[in-house]
Amino acid sequence: MIPLILGYTLDLLVGDPQGFPHPIRLIGKMIENVERVLRKKCKSAQDERRAGIILWFVVVLTSYAVPLVILWLSSKISLLLAGAIETVMCAFILATKSLKDESMIVHKYLEQNDLSSARKYLSYIVGRDVENLNSNQIAKAAVETVAENTSDGVIAPMLFILIGGAPLGFLYKGINTLDSMVGYKNEKYINMGRFSALLDDAANFLPSRIASYLMITASYILNMDYVSAYRIYKRDRYNHKSPNSAHTESVCAGALNIMLGGPNYYGGTLVTKPTIGDDKRPVVNDDIKKANKLMYATSLLCLGIGITVKFLILSF
């Protein structure tokens, strides 16, 4: 519990230092290298599906085993050393400050009416085409990113850490990184990425729902429209191709009384998606700040409640 508390605090203070070798980037490199080796042996769609399963187990088990061995070896030297290393690990696993910082860069350029720079930095955190987005559409995309990633970037890894420490947190990040890199339904990954996509859905099933109720509570604490947050959540939480992604998005849309989702262009192709929330007003730049406040409050609630529950369980 102590490394999680300290790691969360460290993440809020420092975030992800630029130029420092980030463990999640190392997981990404491992995925690329293992995929490259496995693809050379694939002659059919069935081979690709089998390779996808092997890829998943290699990446996920390695993501768990490496930090586990590091912590075990360091504990043989000193428990304080192991605690310090696990604290840094927890800070790397959580993405609270980096999520805020990346979205607030977009906010800064929108504030300056520099749409070109706002689009540029937005492109680093979203997958859609950004070239023709106006200021309201840019703000909406940034809010959607913060809302969706509140679950899989902050709450889900925190819950995994609470259950099994930093090693289980890295196991989750392995699952999540695999989905973000190979979990697509395009020609390249429809077979190899299928297993990773399914297991990511399974891993996020409970965390996304826990995150949503924590976010509804946070909207009440922040004096946002918690009644609408709950109503929109119950109505629109499945308005997404993923069974989990619209849960926190729908809460955020309701709390801010805005509409998220809807059609967007990806690679020049218009992709029609359901809307989330009611179109009561346009999404504006200030909504990025509000979404971040909601994300921070939700993460603090999760940490406080999670630590309390774990302490009570261990007390028995």
Score class of each variant (00 low, 15 high):
55 L>G: 03
146 V>R: 01
220 Y>G: 11
60 V>A: 07
161 I>C: 00
174 G>L: 08
132 N>G: 12
114 D>Q: 13
302 C>A: 15
189 Y>E: 07
89 M>E: 05
123 S>T: 04
15 G>P: 10
146 V>T: 00
212 S>V: 13
35 E>W: 13
40 K>F: 12
2 I>M: 07
278 D>R: 12
52 G>F: 03
59 V>H: 01
249 E>S: 05
44 S>L: 07
291 A>D: 00
151 S>I: 04
294 L>W: 03
42 C>V: 15
282 P>G: 06
72 W>M: 12
182 V>I: 09
202 A>D: 13
33 N>Y: 13
8 Y>H: 10
16 D>Y: 07
79 L>P: 07
238 Y>G: 12
264 N>C: 14
306 G>E: 03
84 A>W: 04
226 Y>R: 08
145 T>E: 08
216 I>R: 05
132 N>F: 14
119 R>F: 04
137 Q>D: 12
149 N>Y: 09
295 M>G: 00
229 A>F: 05
197 A>H: 11
139 A>T: 04
130 V>F: 05
277 G>T: 08
169 G>Q: 06
240 H>E: 07
112 Q>D: 14
209 R>S: 08
271 V>M: 10
45 A>E: 15
129 D>R: 02
231 R>A: 11
279 D>N: 15
116 S>I: 15
19 G>P: 02
152 D>Y: 03
216 I>A: 05
290 K>V: 08
262 G>F: 04
302 C>E: 05
309 V>F: 09
225 D>W: 12
235 R>C: 00
305 I>E: 02
168 L>M: 13
30 M>P: 13
264 N>T: 14
99 L>D: 03
209 R>A: 08
85 I>Y: 11
17 P>N: 04
97 K>Y: 08
189 Y>F: 15
264 N>M: 15
195 F>E: 07
236 D>M: 04
236 D>W: 00
21 P>S: 02
230 Y>I: 12
298 T>Q: 04
48 E>G: 03
220 Y>I: 10
242 S>Y: 04
91 A>C: 07
212 S>H: 07
275 T>N: 11
29 K>F: 12
23 P>S: 05
279 D>A: 13
115 L>V: 06
276 I>E: 01
246 A>W: 01
265 Y>F: 14
156 A>V: 06
290 K>H: 10
274 P>Y: 07
62 T>K: 00
83 G>I: 10
